[in-house]
Design a binder for these strands. Structure first.
Length: 1026
RNA sequence: GCCCGGGUGGUGAAAUGGUAGACACGAAGGACUUAAAAUCCUUUAGACAGCAAUGUCUGUGCGGGUUCAAGUCCCGCCCCGGGUACCA
């Protein structure tokens, strides 16, 4: 291919004689498939171990070397656990609904199912060649109707459930109806929007009076029509249809969940996102907020992910306080974490979107308020956040302080978010920096309520300062003051203690085609679950929204739907996280068409013991799957309420990009300057050039370039400088206080650019100029100027691996060149799994050499097996058992990288010992098999081991082979190691001390002083303090 | 700003409070070879002294501390990466 042809062909002949990885890997992959080696069944009584990878979205680009990192690590653990006798479930599948396939469909008209199918085939081929031990009979694809049938079923179950706060779990909606029928809302304590009843319309419920506050009797309930009952129940369901503020992304034509929005832009594509009120399906994840928080203490995940989830859930304790609007019935409810500062309230601020804005605005402020609200609407969330200064406007209205009865001005400010708390705050400038800033900006007077501190320069946010000007709170602070004030508020009915969460209910509708259709139809505007039949995705003529802005599914005609009920079907589809929220359960029972996962199988396999995946899903997938797991647990379908017992987040593999310096000659300038060529050749800049050996060549080239008219007329002509040349030129020009980029004028250089070079043409930073020029036409006519040694060296940089940076390293080439076993070992050898690290193939030869060395350990020069049944020597046993111990201990603490080193050391030692004993080599091969399964299997066969290497019991180390007769004690004086002394290992501390003190070298380091103290740590160190 | 990670040779890194730099890459030198590849051997943190074996000193981002002993634990900073943000 790219210039190693000359290198590969002679190599292959040689390699064929020894470690022929290509042959071996092909052979065993075929046999394992034929034997069904990775097939897994439930075996009662056999202990299980469930190792799971986050399943990939099958993108068109295929896998790069970063993807398999986690897969290899988990595969090693799966194989290791199998050696230890566990029944290991290690499945793989595809998260195959998603945007890219749909975008491609929009562009080309190709059905996303076809694109997806093709991409999956490519992924599968790439995965297969790396030798993973997946049980492919358990493969799942979220876009398969047989899979999403159950995603839809879970949705229906959520629809048919409500959250009972008294039992703290989800219950069937029928139990709620029963409560309503027997006792009305009495004793109903549900997770529900606090003021849900305000959303019931007068038209639907004409008999509910103005004073209706969400409470009704059994008689009331029974008198309602079915429609009215449904409208009420909708507010209690765990998935519900509601008008909510959503993140609307016009460019993508869909709404996004909070976790899909980063810095006010869509995570995919970076398009602007705006707030819009839309009727959408939502998931009542907030009902689980507290349990999601508490559950974190029971799972073994990284602290950082747990912390991200904690922050995302954002529990804060405080109080809700109600302010009566002056001369009105309306009330403003605020949430505060500092109820103790309530006497310092200087004003109340509403979010511009707050429902009461119109009501509290006085006629003379109307103009200003309307203008302000409209101006805010025009700004995106991002604009609002990036503004440094808070802005606002006075409404003219006043609220009444619940404790003092004082009139308090009501303002509107964009620092108050409609989506957090109640969308209104009580502003205490003395105790809150934002309120302080706002008060200063608009000159609002406020009281200092803190004893002995000044609030002239900034707010005072300490909670431990005694209060003043605070009526009955004077002199108290913190918890005590909070308790007092909450009790008082409750007594007055003006507020209560409250816990608030940042977590919002998750929007579940997407205005897209390639996703799960909802099992929902509408009649008279009310949604109903489709019963008894699965709704499959209908075909549409185009994958775009309709002219009137309806989602693509609205294009499907009645006959396109396999089920069509009521007035119309649901046009939205489910979001990407729907299918991935429960897939780990489906692997347990992937083909069941009676239920999502049989109860006994779920009971057998249980939680995922080790989950491997990226940390970027912290607030999406990882939170939603915990939520759905808890729900399925509540409803009795599974026996555990956390999906992933332990999780490891592999770090990103960064790409190593290569660059060249391309100097583009301005053709026009060349033409102009040909006449005064002499002049610029004599210029100061050229002096710098002439001083360089190879710059002379460049000088020549430039001359010839200028002379040759036809070359000049070719706009593709340019110089491409290697890094050496670029640096040298700059270095030399420095003497003249010049840089290459600044000498444009006289050299007719119009531009110097630094393009990324496709790394497949580069080996160890050296560019294969000929094949590169041949393949990349835009460089066809460029002159490449190499360094003094004739090699064209590129500069490099570490950045994210991406197609556009031409730094994507696919596993395919490496498997081709070194084999899957080498790739597997090398990816682990790179460093700690969790760390981000640059990909660099430099070291891969070392790992490949290790596998070769192992091969040679067992084979002679003619590639014949060289193994004997002689008894092993003590040294050989020691080398083996040392390796067993290190490999086992390191795998147990998931230290994948150090295992490779340990095996290298083992092989090096046994090579030095020229060990060829079967009793040594067989266990060694078992140790190797999780990392290099193909080679291990081949060697196992050659060693005439029984059965497959992957079913061998993991070797156990025996201390007896590890005991050393002697230990070399480092002897230190005042902590500095001075000499070493060899002593019997079983010598006790007192004897060691004596031996050291008697040592001839000891006096010289004591400098004549008497030792104050001698510390002997047996088998470790001796330290003499003097 | 706040919350998590991290900072060790030319490079990737190792080290459970106990000999810092294992293992590898790269580099330099050597053996084998017509040559190359492959393989093998030696050196490879820095500084100083010595013909040499060797010895001494410095050294894990910076400054303190605890300890017989600190890359590791504690306190205060600096830098890099990630998360998050008018969250009331």
């Amino acid at each position: 291919m790219f210039g190693w042809n000359w290198l590969i062909s002679p190599c292959k002949i040689l390699l064929a004689m020894e470690y022929d990885f290509q042959e071996i890997e092909k052979k065993w992959q075929k046999r394992w498939r034929a034997r069904g080696s990775y097939k897994v069944e439930e075996v009662q009584g056999k202990e299980k171990f469930y190792v799971l990878d986050m399943f990939p979205y099958p993108s068109g680009a295929g896998l790069h070397v970063g993807h398999p990192l986690g897969y290899i690590a988990s595969d090693i653990i799966a194989r290791y656990k199998r050696h230890q006798g566990y029944n290991v479930l290690h499945p793989m599948g595809y998260d195959s609904f998603g945007l890219p396939a749909e975008q491609y469909a929009i562009e080309t008209g190709q059905h996303p199912a076809i694109t997806t199918e093709n991409n999956i085939a490519r992924y599968r081929q790439q995965l297969d060649q790396i030798g993973f031990c997946y049980d492919w009979d358990r493969e799942v694809r979220t876009s398969e109707p047989s899979y999403y049938k159950w995603t839809q079923w879970i949705f229906s179950e959520l629809f048919e459930s409500w959250y009972n706060l008294d039992t703290d779990r989800a219950e069937p909606i029928s139990s709620l109806e029963e409560k309503f029928t027997t006792n009305g809302t009495y004793n109903v304590n549900a997770a529900i929007d606090e003021h849900w009843w305000k959303l019931l319309t007068k038209e639907e419920f004409p008999f509910f009076s103005e004073h209706f506050s969400g409470e009704f009797t059994a008689t009331d309930w029974k008198s309602l029509t079915d429609r009215q009952k449904q409208l009420i129940l909708m507010h209690f369901r765990l998935t519900y249809l509601a008008d909510s503020w959503v993140n609307w992304c016009p460019k993508l034509g869909t709404v996004l969940a909070n976790d899909e929005v980063k810095d006010g832009r869509s995570e995919r594509g970076g398009h602007p996102v705006e707030q819009k009120l839309m009727r959408q399906w939502s998931m009542r994840i907030t009902a689980y907020a507290d349990r999601l928080l508490r559950g974190l203490d029971t799972i073994d995940w990284s602290d950082s992910i747990k912390e991200i989830q904690r922050n995302w859930i954002g529990r804060s304790e405080g109080a809700s306080i109600v302010f009566q609007v002056d001369s009105s019935d309306a009330t403003i409810e605020v949430f505060t974490t500092r109820p103790d500062t309530v006497f310092g309230v200087a004003f109340v601020t509403l979010a511009p979107e707050h429902g009461l804005v119109d009501a509290v605005t006085t006629p003379d402020q109307k103009g200003a308020v309307t203008a302000y609200v409209n101006a805010t609407k025009l700004k995106t969330e991002r604009d609002r956040q990036s503004e440094q200064k808070s802005t606002g406007v006075f409404t003219g209205g006043y609220a009444v302080h619940p404790l003092t009865g004082k009139r308090i001005p009501i303002w509107i400010g964009d620092y108050v978010l409609a989506s957090y708390g109640t969308g209104a705050v009580m502003a205490v400038p003395a105790g809150d920096q934002r309120d302080w800033d706002f008060a200063k900006t608009y000159n609002i007077a406020f009281t200092n309520i803190f004893e002995g501190v000044s609030v002239d320069e900034s707010a005072h946010t300490e909670k431990t300062t005694p209060l003043r000007e605070s009526s009955f709170l004077d002199g108290t602070c913190g918890k005590k003051a909070t308790q007092l004030v909450v009790a008082k508020l409750e007594e007055l009915g003006a507020g209560k203690g409250k816990v608030n969460f940042r977590l919002r209910d998750a929007v579940f509708s997407r205005q897209r085609y390639w996703g799960e259709p909802f099992p929902i139809f509408y009649k008279d505007g009310l949604p109903y679950v489709v019963d008894g039949q699965q709704v499959t995705l209908p075909d549409v003529d185009k994958y775009l929204p309709t002219e009137d802005g309806q989602p693509p599914l609205a294009r499907a005609k009645k006959e396109d739907w396999n089920v069509f009920l009521g007035d119309h079907m649901e046009f939205n589809t489910m979001p990407g996280w729907a299918g991935s929220s429960w897939y780990f359960l489906r692997y347990m029972d992937p083909k069941n068409d009676q239920t999502f996962c049989a109860k006994d199988k779920a009971a057998y396999w249980g939680q995922v013991d080790l989950y491997m995946g990226g940390a970027e899903h912290a607030t999406g997938h990882l939170l939603y799957s915990r939520f759905w797991t808890k729900f399925l647990f509540d409803r009795g379908y599974i026996a555990f309420d956390e999906p992933f017992k332990k999780m490891v987040n592999q770090g990103m593999i960064l790409g190593r990009s290569n660059f060249v310096y391309r100097v583009i000659i301005d053709v026009k300038k060349v033409d102009e300057s040909i006449s005064d060529k002499e002049e610029w050749a004599a210029s100061k800049e050229m002096e710098g050039f002439k001083r360089m050996d190879w710059a002379m060549r460049m000088n020549d080239t430039i001359n010839s370039y200028c002379v040759s008219k036809e070359y000049v007329s070719d706009i593709e002509g340019s110089y491409v400088l290697s890094e050496d040349v670029y640096l040298k030129i700059n270095q030399d020009l420095e003497k003249y206080n010049l840089a290459l980029r600044s000498i444009n004028r006289s050299l007719c250089i119009s531009q110097i650019i630094r393009p990324n070079i496709d790394i497949s043409f580069v080996d160890n930073d050296v560019l294969d100029v000929d094949s590169f020029k041949e393949k990349k036409i835009q460089f066809k006519n460029s002159k490449f100027i190499p360094g003094p040694d004739g090699k064209f060296r590129c500069s490099n940089e570490v950045e994210k691996m991406s197609k556009s940076k031409y730094n994507v390293q696919t596993p395919d080439e490496l498997v081709e060149r070194y084999g899957a076993d080498t790739l597997r070992c090398y990816e682990m050898f790179l460093g700690p799994l969790e760390q981000h690290k640059p990909w660099d193939t430099k070291g891969i030869t070392g790992v490949h050499g290790f596998l070769r060395k192992l091969w040679r350990l067992m084979h002679d020069q003619d590639n014949n097996l060289r193994v004997t049944d002689e008894a092993a020597s003590a040294d050989e046993l020691k080398a083996l058992h040392k390796t067993i111990r290190k490999v086992t201990e390191d795998l147990d603490r998931l230290s994948w990288n150090t295992v490779v080193s340990a095996m290298m050391i083992g092989v090096n030692e046994l090579t030095d010992l020229k060990s060829s004993k079967r009793s040594i080599l067989q266990p060694l091969v078992v140790l190797l098999s999780p990392y290099a399964p193909h080679l291990a299997e081949e060697l196992w066969e050659r060693l005439q081991g029984e059965g497959s290497v992957m079913d061998q019991m993991w070797p156990k180390w025996e201390e007896q082979y590890l005991v050393e007769a002697n230990f070399t004690y480092p002897v230190s004086f005042n902590g500095k190691v001075r000499f070493k002394v060899d002593l019997p290992a079983d010598m006790n501390a007192a004897e060691v001390e004596k031996a050291v003190m008697d040592n001839e070298k000891t006096p010289q380091y004591l400098e004549g002083k008497a030792p104050k103290k001698v510390i002997v740590v047996q088998g470790r160190i001796v330290n003499i303090v003097h």
